[in-house]
Measured scan of single mutants.
Amino acid sequence: MDVFMKGLSKAKEGVVAAAEKTKQGVAEAAGKTKEGVLYVGSKTKEGVVHGVATVAEKTKEQVTNVGGAVVTGVTAVAQKTVEGAGSIAAATGFVKKDQLGKNEEGAPQEGILEDMPVDPDNEAYEMPSEEGYQDYEPEA
């Protein structure tokens, strides 16, 4: 019985440690998101679009440190934060509304985080759909 109880105690310690790591990862992701939003706020009209992409990228980098179902929630929060940063930029006159959601080359930025393969159960990952990809044929 002692062996059984000791095993359960060790398992509990492992769960607590994993929860603490997840909590730490979420806190880091939130900190990076805040950094990115402050970065966007300090940019001029020309830099705002690039700044919004930076927020998304920093958040995406930190999301990889967070495991399990938390990833889905962090990704949703990050996307809403990026959308909010863009709205703030438009409201303050840093950028025109028609410039939001495009990178410096004018290509749409939507789907940055949505296409990231995420499995809350950590069982399997699927690649994003290939609808947006084109076949590449090298020139002879």
Rank of each mutant, 00 (worst) to 15 (best):
V55E: 00
L38S: 02
K34I: 13
F4S: 00
V40T: 02
P120E: 06
A69K: 04
K23Y: 14
E13T: 02
E104S: 14
L100Y: 13
K80T: 08
K21A: 09
G73N: 05
A17L: 14
E105A: 11
K102I: 02
E20T: 09
Y125G: 11
A27Q: 12
A85L: 14
V55T: 02
V26F: 04
G31F: 12
A91S: 03
E57Y: 04
E123H: 05
M127G: 14
D2A: 00
G101N: 15
M1F: 15
V82P: 02
V15G: 00
A27F: 12
T59C: 04
E130F: 11
K34Q: 12
K58I: 13
G86S: 06
E57P: 02
Q79Y: 08
P117H: 07
E20R: 11
K32G: 01
T44Y: 10
F4E: 00
V26I: 11
A56G: 01
N65F: 07
K34A: 08
K12M: 14
E139H: 13
A19G: 05
L8R: 00
P108L: 13
D98M: 05
A17N: 05
E46M: 13
K58G: 14
K6F: 15
V77L: 11
K32D: 00
G68H: 05
E20Y: 07
L8D: 00
S42C: 06
G68L: 10
A53I: 08
K45W: 14
G51S: 07
A90H: 10
G101R: 06
K32R: 05
G25T: 06
N122W: 13
E46P: 02
G84S: 08
P138G: 09
M5Y: 15
V77W: 09
T59I: 14
V49I: 11
K96P: 05
M127F: 13
T64L: 15
V49L: 13
K45R: 11
P108E: 03
K12I: 14
M116C: 06
V82W: 09
K12T: 06
T54F: 04
P138L: 02
K45H: 14
V3E: 12
L113P: 13
V71W: 06
E137A: 13
D2V: 07
V15D: 00
A107N: 15
Y39T: 04
F4R: 00
S87G: 02
K21D: 00
E104P: 09
T72N: 12
E110A: 14
G51L: 14
K60M: 14
V3T: 15
A107F: 13
K102R: 11
G14W: 15
K60Y: 15
Q62T: 10
K6I: 03
K23N: 00
G73H: 10
A11H: 00
K58H: 08
E13Q: 12
N65K: 11
P120W: 07
K43D: 00
T64W: 14
S87C: 04
E20I: 03
V66F: 12
S87I: 13
V15M: 07
F94S: 02
V15R: 00
A89S: 05
E105M: 15
V49Q: 10
G7V: 07
T72Y: 02
G36L: 15
G67M: 12
K34H: 04
F4M: 00
G86V: 06
D121T: 13
H50P: 02
A19I: 15
G132A: 14
G7W: 05
Q24P: 00
D115R: 11
T22W: 11
G101Y: 14
G31N: 09
V70C: 01
G14A: 04
K96E: 12
G51T: 13
Y136Q: 05
Q24I: 03
E13W: 06
G106K: 08
V71L: 15
F4T: 01
E83Q: 03
Y125F: 12
D121K: 04
T92W: 15
A17W: 14
E114L: 09
E35F: 09
F94V: 06
K43Q: 03
V74N: 02
V77D: 01
Y125M: 01
D119H: 05
V3A: 15
D2G: 15
E28S: 09
K80D: 02
A85R: 04
K97C: 07
A124E: 11
A78Y: 12
G106C: 06
K6N: 04
E137R: 10
E28T: 11
G93W: 05
G7L: 02
V48N: 00
G36W: 09
G47D: 06
K60P: 01
G86E: 12
D135A: 06
T44Q: 01
V15W: 14
M127T: 11
G47W: 15
S9F: 06
V66G: 01
V48F: 03
G101H: 14
Q99D: 07
V52G: 03
A89H: 05
A91Q: 11
G14Y: 15
N103V: 11
G68P: 14
S87K: 09
K58D: 01
P108S: 03
G132N: 11
V118R: 03
P117W: 08
L100V: 11
F4K: 00
A19C: 01
E57C: 08
K97H: 07
D135R: 03
V71T: 04
E57W: 12
A90D: 04
E61V: 11
E126S: 13
P138H: 08
K43W: 05
T72I: 03
A91D: 04
P138E: 03
P117T: 08
V118P: 05
V52E: 00
V40M: 06
N122M: 05
V118K: 10
E131A: 03
V63C: 10
E35S: 04
E139Q: 08
T72D: 04
H50Q: 03
G14S: 06
A140T: 06
V74I: 01
K58L: 14
G73E: 07
M5V: 10
T81I: 15
V49D: 01
A30R: 02
A89D: 05
T44K: 01
G93R: 08
G68K: 08
N65T: 11
A124H: 06
Q99S: 04
P128V: 11
T72W: 09
A107T: 09
S87V: 13
V63Y: 03
D115H: 09
Y125E: 07
K12S: 03
E131T: 09
A107P: 12
Q99C: 09
G31T: 06
K21Y: 11
K10V: 08
M116Y: 07
G25F: 15
K6E: 15
E61G: 08
Q99H: 13
V52L: 13
P128E: 12
E61Q: 10
V95S: 04
D115P: 12
T33R: 11
A17C: 08
Y133G: 10
A56P: 01
V118G: 12
E130K: 06
E137C: 08
Q109S: 10
G14H: 06
Q99Y: 15
F94H: 03
V82T: 02
E105Q: 04
N65G: 04
Q134N: 04
E104H: 14
E57N: 08
G67I: 11
V26C: 06
G41Y: 15
A69M: 08
G73A: 15
E83L: 14
K60N: 08
V63K: 02
G67Y: 09
P128A: 08
Y133L: 07
E139V: 09
G67V: 12
F4W: 05
S87L: 11
V16N: 02
V26P: 00
H50L: 11
E28C: 09
E139T: 10
G14P: 00
S129P: 11
K23C: 08
G7R: 15
A11V: 15
F94P: 04
Q134M: 11
T92K: 09
E105K: 04
A53D: 02
M5N: 01
V40D: 00
G132P: 13
G73R: 05
I112D: 06
N103F: 10
K23S: 02
V40N: 00
T54D: 00
V40I: 10
G73S: 02
A56W: 10
T44A: 07
T22A: 11
K12E: 00
E83H: 03
P108Q: 13
G111M: 02
V55D: 00
E139I: 09
K6G: 10
D121I: 05
K80E: 04
A11E: 00
G7K: 13
P108I: 01
K97T: 13
P128C: 07
V15K: 00
P120H: 10
S42I: 10
A53R: 07
G31M: 03
E110N: 10
M116I: 09
V82N: 02
Q109D: 12
